[in-house]
C-alpha cells in the first residue's frame, strides 16, 4: 500500500490538513477512533470522579457529560471537511439527545 505524500497536501496552509491526511491514510478510521477515544476518556473520567467522591455511579449522567463533551469535539472536527464522517456526527447528536432524555426521565 502506498501512502499519499504529505508534501502534496495543504498542510503548510492549514494545520487541520494534518488530521485530514491522517484520516485519508487510515481509510476514514482516524476521525472515528479519536472521537471514540475522547468519549471514553470523559466517560471514564466522570465515573472516576464519582468513585473518588465516594458516591454511587450514575451512569446516565456520565453518558450525558461524555456525549456533550464529544459533541463539542465533533463540532470542531466538522469545521473542516474530510475528518469525521457526518454519519458519526449525527450518531453523537442522537446519543446526546437520548442521554438528555434518559437523565430527565430517570431523575
Amino acid at each position: 500500500m502506498t501512502y499519499p505524500e504529505l508534501n502534496g497536501t495543504l498542510v503548510r496552509d492549514d494545520l487541520m490538513e494534518l488530521f485530514v491526511y491522517s484520516n485519508v491514510v487510515t481509510g476514514g478510521l482516524f476521525g472515528l477512533f479519536i472521537t471514540m477515544g475522547f468519549f471514553l476518556v470523559v466517560f471514564i473520567g466522570v465515573m472516576m470522579s464519582y468513585i473518588s467522591r465516594g458516591r454511587d455511579i450514575e451512569i446516565e449522567k456520565c453518558m450525558l457529560a461524555a456525549s456533550f463533551a464529544t459533541l463539542g469535539w465533533a463540532t470542531i472536527l466538522e469545521m473542516s471537511s474530510g475528518i469525521l464522517n457526518p454519519v458519526y456526527f449525527f450518531v453523537i447528536i442522537g446519543i446526546t439527545i437520548l442521554s438528555m432524555i434518559w437523565v430527565a426521565v430517570g431523575d
Binding site: L71, T75, E78, M79, S80, S81, P86, F90, I93, I101
Partner: peptide, 25 residues
C-alpha cells in the same frame, strides 16, 4: 430537554455554517 436541544442544534448548525458552509452535514 426540548429547549436545551434547540439551543444545542442551533449552536452546532450556526458554528459549522460559519466555518464550513459546504459541509456534508
Amino acid at each position: 430537554v426540548l429547549l436545551f436541544s434547540f439551543f444545542m442544534l442551533s449552536f452546532v448548525y450556526t458554528s459549522i455554517e460559519i466555518q464550513n458552509p459546504n459541509s456534508d452535514i
